[in-house]
Computed example of a mutant assay.
Amino acid sequence: MPRPVTVPLVDLAQIVERCAPLWQQLAGRHLLITGGTGFFGTWILSALAAANAACKLGLQVSIVSRTPAQQRARLQHLEKEMACNWIAGTAGDFACPHQPPDFILHLATATSAYTGETDAHRMLVEKLMGIRHVLEVARRSGGARLLVTSSGAVYGRPGAHLEQIPETCCTAPDPMNAASAYGNGKRLVEQFCAANADLPIVVARCFSFLGPHLPVDARFAAGNFIRDAMAGEPITVHGDGRAIRSYLYAGDLVVWLLTLLLQGKPGTAYNVGSDEAVTIAELATRIAALTGQAELRILGTPGNGPAECYVPSIDRAREHCGLRVYTDLDEAIWRTLEWHLRQRKTRFGIVTP
Rank of each mutant, 00 (worst) to 15 (best):
S65Q: 05
I44F: 00
A54M: 11
L32H: 06
I63V: 15
I63M: 11
A50Y: 06
Q71T: 01
L31R: 05
K56F: 11
R29P: 10
A27R: 15
W43V: 04
R72H: 15
L32D: 04
R72Q: 15
F40V: 09
T67E: 06
G35E: 11
Q76D: 08
F40D: 07
G36N: 04
A51L: 06
A51I: 05
G58P: 09
T34K: 07
A73V: 06
F40R: 04
L78R: 04
A69I: 09
L48G: 04
Q76K: 14
F39K: 03
A27M: 05
Q60N: 13
T34S: 14
F40K: 03
A49M: 06
K80N: 10
E81R: 15
R66G: 10
A47T: 00
G41V: 05
L57D: 10
G28M: 09
E81V: 00
A73F: 09
S65N: 02
G58V: 06
V61F: 12
L75N: 08
Q70S: 02
Q25K: 13
L26D: 00
G58F: 05
L78T: 03
Q76W: 10
V61S: 02
A53V: 01
E79Y: 11
W43T: 01
Q70C: 02
H30L: 09
R66A: 03
W43H: 14
A49D: 00
L31F: 09
P68L: 01
G28E: 12
A54R: 15
V64F: 07
H77V: 11
L57H: 09
R74N: 14
G41N: 04
Q25Y: 08
S62C: 14
I44V: 13
T37R: 02
T34E: 08
Q60S: 12
S62I: 01
G36R: 05
R74P: 07
A51G: 09
L78K: 02
G36H: 00
L31A: 05
R66E: 04
M82V: 15
Q60I: 00
E79V: 13
H30Q: 14
A47V: 02
A69Y: 10
K56W: 00
A49H: 12
F39I: 04
L31K: 06
L57P: 08
G41R: 06
E79G: 15
P68C: 07
H77M: 12
L32E: 01
A53M: 12
L78W: 04
T37M: 09
Q70H: 09
I63N: 10
V61M: 06
C55R: 15
A51T: 11
G41A: 07
G28H: 13
Q60C: 03
G36D: 07
A47C: 10
